[in-house]
Nucleic acid binder design. Structure first.
Lengths: 186, 186
DNA sequence: GTCTATAAAGTGATAGAC
DNA sequence: GTCTATCACTTTATAGAC
């Protein structure tokens, strides 16, 4: 087989990225060492530095949060969009988001990124929701979202870790609908 | 004024504990150094070690999660108990719980403690709830709980950080009631 | 291109002077 | 009792041998 130098290097880079995603997601930013990533990728700490510049830059490449599509429509459509988006986050092993989530509380920049992304969506949603307390209800939707993801992937609550995404969204859908429309809260 | 040596020492210990609570809560376990705690308490790193043995033991004293009372009664009473307990956690600055929460994702032992405490309560509640998917709904209640606390104290979602505990529980109460009773989910 | 050796800085923990 | 000085270790990052 003919593997050029460039191909070799690309494959090593991919192995390093995969190892970094997994280890950052499992142990957080501070407890994941360049050495451990290199070892897990069957590579070398010096190479990791050479390819990615610094631990910080490697983390940034690995822990970016995928952007969400814009939210629009009437309350029912908004509720369905939010429920579907949450269902997607419950699918198995979104390693990149996990790394950002776990690092959120110890790595200031990761925390800011999660916060910015979530607050932006909440404001977007709140603007389309009826009622005086729309901002509060949008915040509760955000809390429900992040709590469910954490409960399933990180803390592994028995009810959440065992169920399928469909079963979970079936329970969440009516809650989100009630929060969006404002029923039973004023 | 007459301050005995024992009193002096006790006051220094209390200052160290307060500083540790604050710094662990703000920056997490790994990023909080013994030196920083000592400086914040106007004390000395050597003394911190002498009084508390190790960084680990100091953290354990500071980040224990207060035990919850037992849950019992009919579904309506359970929902009210859970809502009230959550309201208490939204009161301002529960520094000890914050330290445990922030460390949860990087400090394995802290994570286990939070997980054990929350799963225990969820199982207790699920056993008293009607329906086949009681465990799932109990997990969602747990997710809502931890998500709300994180959203208010750590991520500071605008809707949650601004509101009073009473306003927040007013929104959460009907959600929790629906989850406990199982209405609109089967 | 890849990896070894090492530098530079910061950590928790300890010993001992005052 | 309190604090200074230091140890032993680990970290990221760099320089240079192969």
């Amino acid at each position: 087989m003919t593997t050029t130098r460039a191909e070799q290097r690309r494959q090593t880079e991919l192995r390093i990225l995969a190892a970094a995603r997994r280890l950052f997601g499992e142990h957080g930013y501070d407890r994941t060492t360049i050495r451990a990533i290199a070892a897990a990728a069957d590579s070398d700490a010096g190479l990791v530095m050479r390819y990615f510049g610094s631990k910080e830059q490697l983390f940034a490449q690995v822990a970016t949060i995928p952007a969400e599509g814009p939210i629009e429509g009437d309350p029912d459509q908004i509720a369905e969009l939010l429920t579907a988006a949450l269902g997607g986050k419950l699918a198995d092993e979104p390693a990149a988001a996990l790394a950002a989530l776990r690092a959120m509380f110890s790595h200031p920049e990761a925390g800011r990124e999660v916060r910015t992304a979530m607050i932006g969506q909440q404001r977007q949603v709140a603007a389309l929701m009826p009622g005086d307390d729309a901002a509060l209800r949008a915040g509760v939707i955000g809390a429900l979202t992040i709590g469910t993801v954490i409960g399933r992937h990180l803390l592994e609550f028995d009810g959440l870790a065992d169920a399928t995404p469909g079963e979970i969204t079936a329970v969440l859908r009516p809650l989100i609908r009630a929060l969006v429309s404002g029923d039973a809260s004023e």
